[in-house]
């Protein structure tokens, strides 16, 4: 067991967005959160990553309440990649990736040789070695997203939380980013929790799917358990047909809205 949320409720001001959500993210798994717009997916990730305070419930990381872990120590355990990153355009790729080392540095923030090596390694592992001296503004959306993932790799956390990592990307880069996330999981042994919009991507790239609806957990399970005509109809209000492909596993074709 890696991350566990117990009856988590959170929102903005007095407005509650998520209500009593309990879920467990198993160590070594890729867990995808899906749900309609406004179902509280991003809010759930913000609450787990400590960006908003949960009004109720508890979050445990390896059995320890997250609220008792100091911010810098927590940043060595989990990283959270929000949908948008406000980076000044003049920063270089390697500067952004180097920020990932921040929680590992001392008070003065000086990078040691080992830190520089880890930054280089992170840049290489996303295939951006030829881009490391380029400015962020010269990158395409896909390359920018790769840079952010490299920053998460440089942060060396066991748990990586991503909010819609494939938004705004073309299909080629969507698959590249998802392939990279699978590599983080399989060859680097990281546990992944991410929000995805595309149900078929969630099915193909995750071990476990959590379905949110109207701020509550609707259900969770393996892709086989989640991709059913019934659930898609009840949660997404669509009529869909379910197929199985020997390479892709289970997937759906959405026909119409109900």
């Amino acid at each position: 067991m890696h991350l566990q949320c117990d009856t988590l409720s959170a929102g903005y001001g007095r407005e509650m967005i998520i209500n009593e959500i309990s879920l467990t993210v198993k160590k070594g798994d890729i867990t995808a959160i899906i749900g309609p717009n406004g179902s509280g997916k991003s809010t759930l990730l913000r609450a787990i990553s400590g960006n908003i305070k949960n009004t109720d419930g508890k979050i445990f990381l390896n059995g320890k309440p997250v609220s008792e872990i100091r911010p810098k120590a927590l940043a060595r355990e989990l990283t959270y990649m929000p949908q948008v990153l406000a980076a000044y355009p003049g920063f270089l790729v390697k500067d952004i990736v180097a920020c990932g080392r921040f929680p590992h540095l001392g008070f003065g923030g000086r990078m040691k040789k080992e830190d520089h090596e880890k930054v280089n390694w992170a840049i290489e592992s996303v295939g951006l070695q030829d881009y490391k001296d380029r400015t962020i503004s010269s990158l395409s959306g896909g390359e920018f997203q790769m840079t952010r993932i490299a920053m998460a790799i440089a942060q060396e956390t066991d748990l990586v939380i991503l909010d819609e990592p494939t938004t705004f990307l073309d299909i080629n880069h969507q698959l590249r980013v998802l392939g990279l996330i699978r590599k983080l999981n399989e060859s680097m042994g990281k546990t992944i929790l991410m929000v995805l919009h595309d149900i078929n991507h969630a099915s193909r790239f995750s071990h476990e799917i959590v379905v949110l609806d109207k701020g509550c957990k609707y259900t969770s399970g393996t892709p086989q358990e989640i991709l059913t005509e019934n659930i898609l109809q009840n949660v997404f209000k669509i009529n869909a047909r379910i197929f199985t492909d020997p390479d892709h596993g289970i997937y759906c074709l959405s026909d119409s809205v109900t």
Binding site: R46, S49, N51, P71, Y80, G100, F102, P103
Partner: peptide, 10 residues
């Protein structure tokens, strides 16, 4: 990098 990313970096 923005509040959320900064917070996630500790």
């Amino acid at each position: 990098m923005g509040d959320e990313t900064a917070r996630s970096l500790g």
